[in-house]
């Protein structure tokens, strides 16, 4: 046995690796590399003037800002939802569990139209907020609301299995050793779930950056104020300017890659530091 240490117990490594590389190439790397090739034709000067124009810069700020904010809120809401679903038994838990996944299944344009109808000044919730001077639909707040909607399930679904694995007896042990509730949470629960919350955060953030369908209905799409980067890409395409579109996309692609890489590193670091 010792001699065969390198061999995996499961057979078929070669085949599995082959399929992985093939699908990554066909579905991910080749399409993405065409973005690089397309922008390579346009020359540095043109590229730079496209991606630094005020409208594009504003769209980047809005897209990254709203996605980041939404992902943070998603992480909190998602954690609480996962906690409620794993730690408490109550009637309807199964149904609630299924509802969490609905945003995955719902076409995002349906979500966008519904959220807009509800949050518009004459809508169900919007009409309650309007007297308070809070406007959601057609503002940046609306973008964040839409992104929270599509992002929460990512956090719930990444945190939930970890919480399920986390033995409540650990918490009881901490309590019997005299730890306060806050201390138990900070020293026992948090370290175990931080890596999964970070994964959920990264997924929700990435999804938010790319989200188009739900946002364009609720954002109002005003240049410099509520226009997101994916919409600008579509606008460029509709002017048949494929190069400008790919230039804008390339910056989003590179920035998301860097951010996701950073989150992955952070996640590894926390997993090591907090290792139980």
């Amino acid at each position: 046995m010792a001699l065969k240490q390198n061999r995996s117990i499961l057979p078929g490594f070669g085949l599995a690796m082959g399929i992985t590389v093939a699908y990554l190439s066909v579905l991910v790397l080749i399409p993405l590399s065409t973005i690089f090739l397309n922008t390579a034709h346009m020359g540095w000067h043109h590229f730079w003037s496209v991606v630094t124009s005020p409208r594009v810069e504003a769209a980047y700020r809005i897209s990254f800002g709203a996605s980041f904010l939404a992902a943070i809120i998603d992480s909190m809401l998602g954690f609480i939802a996962a906690w409620a679903l794993t730690r408490y038994r109550f009637i309807g838990a199964g149904i609630l569990d299924a509802i969490v996944d609905l945003p995955f299944a719902l076409p995002t344009s349906v979500a966008g139209i519904t959220l807009t109808a509800i949050f518009a000044n004459n809508g169900l919730i919007g009409s309650l907020l309007a007297p308070l001077g809070i406007r959601v639909a057609f503002t940046r707040l609306g973008i964040v609301v839409a992104l929270i909607f599509v992002g929460v399930p990512f956090v719930v679904r990444t945190v939930q299995p970890v919480l399920q694995e986390l033995d409540p007896e650990l918490e009881e042990a901490a309590e019997t050793l005299g730890a306060t509730r806050a201390r138990t949470f900070a020293r026992v629960i948090l370290p175990a779930i931080v890596p999964s919350v970070l994964t959920g955060f990264a997924l929700a953030f990435a999804r938010g950056l790319g989200e188009y369908g739900s946002v364009i209905f609720i954002s109002g799409n005003m240049p410099l104020r509520t226009e997101i980067a994916p919409l600008l890409i579509v606008i460029e395409l509709e002017q048949f300017d494929y190069r400008a579109a790919t230039a804008i996309a390339l910056v989003v692609l590179l920035a998301s890659f860097v951010i996701l890489l950073a989150i992955n590193l952070l996640q590894r670091w926390t997993a090591r530091t907090y290792a139980l």
Binding site: F138, I216, F217, G220, N221, M222, P223, L231, V234, I235
Partner: peptide
């Protein structure tokens, strides 16, 4: 004076 710019006429 335009508060919302939709992408198409139906919107």
């Amino acid at each position: 004076h335009v508060p919302v710019l939709d992408t198409g006429a139906r919107g």
